[in-house]
Design a protein around this nucleic acid. Structure first.
Lengths: 83, 83
DNA sequence: TCCACACTTGACATATTTGACAAGTGAATG
DNA sequence: CATTCACTTGTCAAATATGTCAAGTGTGGA
């Protein structure tokens, strides 16, 4: 019951990334620019909207750019999705 | 300086998964069996040894099987890698 | 020695992420 | 209007994760 479906997981994680990004005042372009190595805005968009299933390395790069730990980035409430 | 190279990240995460797995008294076969859906021992081995860059969904499935949160699973010390 | 168990490693097919680019939407502004 | 900005969406190629099978290593027990 507490198990999260894949698509939900991706959407929830995407929203969390977006929340943190916005709270820091970054645009998607800003974020992509801060990410180590090459990172396209396209991917930011796809990940934030949960249309892609990012790899550990990608999540790590995003976490660094957002100046949070991986652990924080994925600190998802597994509780209710309602309301 | 604090930025972790990809291969290090994968190895560290793999070791962490292995630690938790062993602390729960599971073999790789046990773990693979507990993971939601299909999961081969091969993958457990590859992930634990850092030879593969797992996706968010895969990490989530492993976390569930290990009965820890994603956040706990990835609670990696970003401190020194030395010594 | 033989066998079982736990794990590693290689090869392969399939699916998907990532990276690159182009185009489209909507909002705000001059 | 036209332009700019932020973001979405489509397509494509390349790299790679996953799933599956087979074989190899090392350990321990009968």
């Amino acid at each position: 019951m507490s198990s999260v479906e894949e698509s939900d997981l991706l959407k929830i994680t995407g929203k969390r990334i977006q929340q943190i990004r916005i709270s820091k005042g970054y645009s998607q372009v800003d974020l992509a620019g801060k990410i180590l190595g090459v990172f396209d805005t396209t991917n930011v968009s796809r990940i934030e909207s949960g249309r892609t299933n990012p790899t550990l390395n990608t999540l790590h790069r995003i976490a660094e750019a957002l100046e949070v730990s991986l652990s924080e980035l994925l600190n998802i409430e597994e509780c209710e999705t309602d309301v």
